[in-house]
């Protein structure tokens, strides 16, 4: 018996041949797809957070435009409106903006020179509302009418609806891109499995004609490709997390841009990448391998 071979210490070798250059290329492609998927997830989370932030800001405040009646000055009308609204349930604070601030808001549209003293500039009252139970525009309007104040209430509901609609579009777009990337990953894996099976048809035939069941052969490919998927997911996810961390670190608290405030916790979205990539790769490989083996006599 061979001096190099000890029967008692023999362990079965891998039934599939060792990895080759094609496997490296596949890991790279899947890693890139995982990287893009993770970036998509980061963008979706940041968009979600931004939308929530804007909605919270807008729903927690309201603006009232006060027009002075003939028997009072604009300042006294604004003060009366603020006093009236401060007593409404759900209003935390009502503050009449001084004339200078109201004129500053109008200046970009009509110019500073046009704001002559006798121009009836409307006054603004800003309201901080209880975000848990903000009063509706109707309640505020009724309170002002009851106090005899001529005013228009803007509770920002039109902007909130627009922002929520935009946020939903961003969420669905991110989900769609993520689904596309997942489908592309599955297609790449299935293609690679078929190519791998074609290249190793000799091995498959020997196993097949030795009585191996389709699921036995499929599980070999499933395990091989799931391992490769996990590695690719790890590489792609780690690369995306590094990019996200750099963006978060160098852009400060506001994130990559004020419109996409990335948080440290968002980087955790890259964590499932190896598991998801392994799952997609394993299932795709199993299905492709099972189909090919069943096509054999």
């Amino acid at each position: 018996m061979s001096e190099f071979f000890q029967v008692s210490r023999w362990k079965p070798g891998p039934l599939l041949p060792p990895r080759d250059a094609r496997d490296g290329a596949l890991v790279f492609v899947v890693a890139v797809l995982c990287f893009l998927a993770c970036l998509t997830a980061f963008a979706a989370l940041a968009a979600n957070r931004a939308a929530h932030g804007w909605t919270a800001q807008l729903s927690g405040s309201a603006t009232v435009v006060v027009r002075a009646r003939s028997n009072e000055t604009p300042d006294s009308a604004a003060a009366r409106a603020a006093e009236t609204l401060a007593g409404v349930r759900g209003v935390i604070e009502a503050q009449a903006l001084p004339r200078e601030k109201a004129e500053a808001l109008l200046a970009p549209w009509i110019g500073a020179e046009a704001l002559v003293d006798d121009l009836p500039t409307p006054r603004l009252v800003t309201l901080d509302l209880d975000p848990k139970a903000p009063p509706t525009a109707g309640i505020l309007d009724r309170a002002l009418r009851a106090a005899g104040v001529d005013a228009t209430v803007d509770d920002h509901s039109r902007w909130i609806a627009d922002i929520e609609r935009a946020a939903n579009i961003a969420r669905f777009a991110a989900l769609g891109v993520f689904a596309l990337i997942a489908a592309a990953t599955a297609a790449v894996i299935a293609f690679a499995t078929r190519a791998g099976l074609a290249a190793r048809r000799d091995v498959i035939e020997v196993l097949h004609f030795s009585g191996a069941e389709a699921r036995f052969i499929a599980s070999l490919f499933q395990n091989r490709f799931a391992t490769m998927g996990a590695l690719a997911g790890l590489l792609g996810g780690a690369a995306a997390a590094i990019i996200g961390a750099l963006a978060r670190y160098f852009a400060g608290g506001v994130g990559v841009a004020p419109v996409l405030p990335l948080a440290w916790i968002d980087l955790l979205a890259a964590l499932p990448a190896p598991v998801l990539a392994a799952l997609i790769a394993g299932v795709s490989a199993r299905l492709a391998a099972s189909r090919i083996v069943r096509e054999m006599p």
């Binding site: 029967v7 079965p12 039934l15 009585g211």
Partner: peptide
């Protein structure tokens, strides 16, 4: 039809593994 990446022993034992 031997499996080229497996040793002689592994090839001979293949049906038993299956």
């Amino acid at each position: 039809r031997l499996l080229e990446h497996l040793s002689v022993f592994d090839n001979a034992a293949l049906p038993l593994r299956i």
